[in-house]
């Protein structure tokens, strides 16, 4: 009996030690969470109820910023620009990513070289990518319009055109499809091969197997990629800052490339309206939250989860 209680005691003191050590190990993260995440989230909410030009006194104005925001034409405009971008960019990236993954899946000789080639553009610093593509999109001397000309299409003015600037930036995103492609490839490799074998025995051709087996089984991957790519698209900044108007930036031409986060940046760092910029950041957070919830809620309609 004595022995047992000794062990119990020892065990519980070991447990206590492990518990303390556990907290000690995650202490840097907890500190960071409070200082760089939780604190700022609350402070940004607090700020959004103030008028505050960074060098002046902070002034409580209640929901004044939000009222102003809902009558601000540039707020609506920048939302429209951002959603237009997302509506073009996200489906394109998912489709091209899936296509490349399907081509790489058969593991023919040299697959790893092709995989590297498709992946490399996504590790280039975004400022370098954007600079390069301004040159590619150059209406007169750029590579793209030269090729379009060769096949008999008169290319538009791309980054100089109010109509084409957002699609042009969205198309560029296809070049950095790498991570999406890799995750699709991993999704494909997770599908048990017996499914395809069985369908083949039943006489299904490649397209039927793709449509009825591969795509449904990949839908959890598509779901994940859809959310992450959409979140990324709604937070697009560098491309907009740099490329609009062929390098003029700041929403050029004529605010046609005024992405939401660019507008937020202008409010915050060009005009130092920190209160108003905070309310803009809160609206973005809410939009992303609501969209994520909607996508999750509707996911049972189109995402197929295998029951194990």
């Amino acid at each position: 009996m004595g022995n047992r209680s000794y062990f119990m005691k020892k065990r519980s003191s070991l447990g206590k030690k492990e518990r303390l050590e556990g907290y000690l190990f995650i202490l840097p993260w907890i500190t960071g969470f409070i200082v760089f995440t939780a604190g700022p989230i609350l402070f940004s909410l607090f700020l959004s109820f103030h008028e505050w030009h960074i060098f002046d006194e902070m002034k409580w104005i209640g929901i004044g910023n939000y009222k102003k925001l809902f009558t601000d034409p540039l707020f609506y405009h920048s939302l429209k620009v951002t959603f237009e971008y997302a509506a073009i960019n996200v489906p394109l990236v998912l489709i091209v990513g899936l296509l490349l993954a399907l081509l790489l899946y058969p593991k023919v000789r040299g697959t790893s070289i092709f995989r590297t080639i498709f992946y490399i553009p996504s590790i280039v610093p975004i400022v370098a990518t954007a600079t390069l593509w301004i040159w590619i999109y150059n209406p007169e001397y750029g590579l793209l319009n030269f090729f379009l000309d060769k096949i008999g299409i008169k290319g538009p003015d791309w980054l100089y055109s109010t109509e084409w600037v957002v699609p042009a930036i969205a198309f560029m995103g296809v070049w950095t499809v790498g991570p999406t492609m890799i995750i699709y490839l991993a999704g494909l490799e997770d599908i048990p091969k017996v499914y395809w074998d069985a369908a083949k025995v039943d006489g299904a051709n490649y397209w039927q197997r793709l449509w009825y087996i591969t795509l449904p089984l990949l839908s959890p991957t598509t779901f994940f990629l859809f959310i992450t790519n959409l979140m990324g698209a709604l937070q697009t900044f560098a491309q907009a800052y740099i490329m609009g108007g062929g390098g003029e930036g700041f929403g050029a031409p004529a605010n046609a490339s005024l992405f939401y986060c660019l507008y937020l940046y202008e409010q915050g760092w060009s005009w130092f309206n920190m209160g108003y910029a905070s309310s803009l950041s809160w609206i973005l957070t809410l939009i992303i939250l609501v969209l994520t919830i909607i996508i999750f809620k509707t996911s049972n309609k189109w995402v197929y989860y295998e029951r194990s």
Binding site: E18, W29, F43, L47, M274, L284, T285
Partner: peptide, 27 residues
């Protein structure tokens, strides 16, 4: 390690991945 609230804290870690970059930026 085993410590109280570990799984809840880890869930918190994962949740912070969903927070947009711009939310915490200004503060």
């Amino acid at each position: 390690l085993r410590f109280k609230g570990r799984d809840k804290l880890f869930f918190l870690v994962i949740s912070t991945m969903m927070i947009p970059y711009y939310t915490t930026l200004i503060p």
